[in-house]
Computed example of a mutant assay.
Amino acid sequence: MSKVYKAVVTVADRFVPGKLRPLWEHPAGPKTIFFWAPAFKWALVLASLDSFSRPLEVVSTSQSATLAATGLVWTRYCLVITPINYSLAICNFMLGVANSVQTMRAYNFHRKHAIA
């Protein structure tokens, strides 16, 4: 797979305009996993935002809390690795925020509707 990816990058390299060259050549740019990880991880953020439309009785508080913790912990990690990956940090932070809000919503719902 890396041979195919390298071939695609080599071909694409010829078409990158001069103004985009710094982004293209950046240590966390499209030529590296540091770019593609957050690009695909945004799907988790979008799924988390989509779960706001689900009824709260089917929302898992533990799953939302786990995703929130994961997002916030990895946000910190993204800021201490080399190269610093701001795009992944923003993605993880948004994952943490979205799921923190969802956790509180689900927790309050389940607490309010608990049978005494």
Rank of each mutant, 00 (worst) to 15 (best):
V4W: 11
V4C: 06
V4I: 13
V8I: 15
V9D: 05
V9Y: 05
T10G: 09
T10K: 13
D13P: 04
F15Y: 10
V16R: 02
V16E: 03
G18R: 12
G18A: 11
L20T: 02
P22Q: 15
E25H: 07
E25Y: 02
E25G: 11
E25F: 04
H26F: 04
G29C: 02
K31L: 06
K31H: 04
A37V: 11
A39W: 00
F40H: 04
W42I: 12
W42H: 04
W42V: 10
V45S: 06
A47K: 07
S48M: 00
S48R: 00
D50I: 00
S53Q: 13
E57L: 05
V58A: 10
L67S: 14
A68E: 00
T70E: 09
T70L: 12
T70G: 13
W74F: 10
C78Q: 13
I81L: 09
I81D: 08
I81C: 09
P83R: 01
P83M: 00
Y86H: 10
Y86N: 06
S87H: 14
S87N: 15
C91F: 01
C91H: 03
F93G: 13
M94W: 04
L95Y: 08
T103A: 07
M104E: 01
A106L: 05
N108F: 12
N108Y: 12
F109Q: 01
K112Q: 15
A114G: 15
I115H: 10
A116G: 09
A116E: 14
